[in-house]
Design a protein around this nucleic acid. Structure first.
Lengths: 217, 217
DNA sequence: ACATGTGAACAACTTCACAGCG
DNA sequence: CGCTGTGAAGTTGTTCACATGT
């Protein structure tokens, strides 16, 4: 029943990721079946929420038993697009870019960093962690060559707009943006913004106001 | 009119951060007044959204003119809790921890990294970027000494639970968690989870399904 | 005329509650 | 009986539209 059932809330997709991680954890504990209740409990969601989310994509459960973990993992990986490999470019080899390149957690989910772009003449032509560093001018060519589908923007804010524009020109469809520059894009592109200062500010807000109800954080 | 007006949606708080950045940008362009429409346009929100968000905290605008930027910046900084300094601990000096310590963007908003905790014997007792590295066993003492209010969890997932527990024991109220471990806490604590793999998975989902409506990303 | 602030209308998301099935 | 899948109900969040004030 994996037909189109209307737009999926972004929140659902985010939770799907979380469920997948929970299932992998449960699997490593040699559990075979898991109920929506258990999945919810491990993450602080209601069981109905879990069932509704999963039901957007099919009937994966067995009544009276729960979800068969190996099969649901396979399904979720397929839904999230993880049955294929993803080639990623890092724009900007500052500290954050370096953290990305060094982080081992991506490969497990099929995300491979295949190219780094930076304007620093001393870095261009060298490799960082085995990944070649290029000048941003070469993005278009290399993106095509290496079939890059996602770009991670970790350049300084001052040059972020230009960097994002290059990514768009290179027809890279997915963008994970760590700068505080925000632009609206054509529908064919998918951009997610992660704002680290903003995260801290949100925390600061809720700490300074313990009286304030803190909903859905 | 900064009384309690019911729970503030987390989304509103997140947008407040964004507005603040927009205002600072506008200020650097020597603009004096800005309308809700302009603030919205720069970020892809409706003008009504901007007004509603701001109206949760007071009547800051002038009818017919818009918002006086210097004053609104001051108000937003106060609302977000940025009139005070925040002392931050980094738990885990891996790549991501190093990226945090090296990132200059925090100080501007009053966030100061004052201590690093790591179990690596070679790092303990040294300084990284001028910040001392301690053993996690010392967290409680140092948190009290240095008045640490927020901890950033950048340890490997395998030790994340223990690391978060130490933070809680040290009565550090704000937690920014970059691991994929999720736990529910007492109300007095504020935890935000940032899952980098999850962000990429969400992007992968929407790229693989261009037919799918992509709402609110 | 212009732009805010806000009740009312609308849309989206979550939870409830139960039918249905193993 | 237990647990899924799902319409219906309830809740939360967003947009509309206009009264109000400059």
């Amino acid at each position: 029943m994996a037909e189109y059932l209307g737009p999926t809330p972004i929140a659902t997709v985010t939770r799907l990721s979380i469920y997948l991680r929970t299932l992998e954890e449960a699997q490593s504990e040699n559990i075979e079946y898991i109920s929506s209740m258990k999945i919810g409990q491990r993450n602080g969601f209601t069981s109905a929420q879990v069932r509704k989310d999963l039901s957007c994509f099919g009937n994966f459960g067995q009544k009276g038993k729960g979800y068969y973990i190996p099969s649901l993992i396979k399904q979720l990986r397929s839904i999230l697009g993880l049955s294929q490999k993803w080639n990623i470019a890092i724009m900007g080899l500052g500290h954050l870019g370096q953290a990305f390149v060094g982080y081992k957690g991506f490969q497990k989910s099929g995300f491979n960093i295949v190219a780094i772009f930076d304007t620093d003449e001393n870095k261009i032509g060298t490799k960082y962690n085995g990944i070649p560093v290029h000048h941003p001018d070469d993005l278009k060519r290399i993106a095509k060559n290496k079939d890059i589908q996602i770009a991670v923007i970790t350049v300084p804010s001052s040059v972020a707009k230009a960097s994002i524009q290059r990514v768009i020109d290179a027809k890279i469809k997915g963008i994970l943006n760590f700068t505080d520059v925000r632009i609206s894009l054509d529908n064919e592109f998918v951009m997610k913004n992660v704002n680290l200062v903003g995260e801290l500010e949100t925390i600061a807000f809720y700490i300074t106001r313990p009286d304030w109800q803190c909903r859905g954080i």
